[in-house]
Design a protein around this nucleic acid. Sequence first.
DNA 1: CCAATTTGACCATA
DNA 2: TATGGTCAAATTGG
Length: 217
Amino acid sequence: MARLARSGFLAPNSLETLTIFGVSVVSSARYETAHSGDVSALERAISAIAILKSSGTAGQVEATAPPFYTPESSVSVDGSPRSEDLNKNFKNQEHQDTPKKRVNSENGLEGPTDDGYNWRKYGQKDILGAKYPRSYYRCTYRRLQNCWATKQVQRSDDDPTTFEITSKGMHTCNHSANAVPQPASPEKQELRHNPQNHQPQQENQMLLNFQANNIMT
DNA sequence: CCAATTTGACCATA
DNA sequence: TATGGTCAAATTGG
């Protein structure tokens, strides 16, 4: 099961779990949000995932992936080519020889899990068939701001420098710690104005329903 | 001191 | 009943 996400499989139970080419879409969108200040990046990612989910199985996800996610850019949302570059700029000031930009550690500074939010670890489990344990985090401001975002971090079996991050629940806290190091690039703003990239409100509503169903446990 | 992490127990679900 | 997810007491560390 550890392989699920890596092959672009859309896991059935976790709304925001979608990893293509080894990179979590949501985590990638978070990088984008953290750096561009474009808060809608995450929402667009989640909407896209909800749409993919409602439209089918793993195979179909792979099939429909190219318009949304291209191999060249590792992962992008709504055709944005930026995620990979963002990751690179974000983490590798002195470590640019990484062959592929995934969610990568190695740099002693911030782990791969620094996505601009403050997380508090609340558990760790050994997963059947997985080489490394899975860690569970929730937003530090769960009580203070009633923020119910959580995430799981799983080190990849065969590439120990790569982590698969599965997010669940949206941040309702307004604590974007490393707020906006750089203003949004023109290209990104273009993206937002592109009608083809804009998700209809209907689908956002659908997303909310998904969330309501999935978060309640 | 206080807050975050660790870690085994506990719980829900398939 | 095995597995994955969460709780919470004990521990760490700032």
